[in-house]
Amino acid sequence: MSDEEDDIVLSELDDEELVQQMHDDLYDGLKDEVVEGTNILLGRDWAPYRVLTEALVGGMKIVGEDFRDGILFVPEVLLAANSMKSGMAILKPLLAETGAPTIGKMVIGTVKGDIHDIGQNLVTMMMEGAGFEVLNIGINNPVESYVEALNEFQPDILGMSALLTTTMPYMKVVIDAMVEQGIRDDYIILVGGAPLNEEFGKAIGADGYCRDAAVAVDMAKEFMARKHNQMAAG
C-alpha cells in the first residue's frame, strides 16, 4: 500500500495516523512494523482490546475484503496474517489479564484425511480477533477428536474445514455421529473450504457455509446473537 515505510517513524505519528499506518503495514505483511506499532499503542495506554480491534482486526478486515474482491491473493493474505499473529502474540496475555470480552467459544479443525490448515488458521485468528475463544485442534481429525474437543472445551460453535473434494464428505460423517450421540443440536456447526458451497453445507446438515474467514466471523456473531435472544426469550 505505502511506498514510504522507510521514511516513516511510527513513534512520531499520532494515534489516528499510527492506526492507519498499521493497517497499511499489515496489508503489506510487514511483521516488525506491526509489532512495533502494537507496542507503541500499548505504551500510550491503549487497552489491549482496543489495539486488537482498531489496529489489527481493522487492518485484517481490509485484507479480507480485498481477498474477497480478487485484489489480494493467498500469499499476501498469509503474510498479512503472519503479521497480525505477531501483534496478537503480544496482546493475547494482556487480553487474558484485562478480562477482554468473550462473545463465544469455538472448536475448529480440518477433517480426517486432510492436512490443509491455512484457512482454518485464518478463521481462528479472525475469530479470536472478534472476541471468540477458539480451540484449534489442527489437521486430520476423526470424529473422536471432534467429539472429545467438544466435550472438553464446551464451545458454542463447531467449525470444520476441508480443502479436498475427497475429504469434504467427512464433515457429514462427523455431523451424523453427533446426531447419533444426541449432541448435534447443542452446537452451531459452520463449515468452510475451497470446494464447498452453500448447497453442500445444507445437504450435510451444517448450520452455515462460510466462504471465507470474514464471513465465518459475521456468521458466528449472528448465530451467537440469535442464541442469546432465544435464551432470553426462553
Partner: peptide
C-alpha cells in the same frame, strides 16, 4: 503460491 517472492511461506 508466491514462493518466488516469499520463499519463507513454503512451510505454511
Amino acid at each position: 503460491l508466491g514462493l518466488d517472492r516469499h520463499p519463507e511461506l513454503r512451510d505454511s
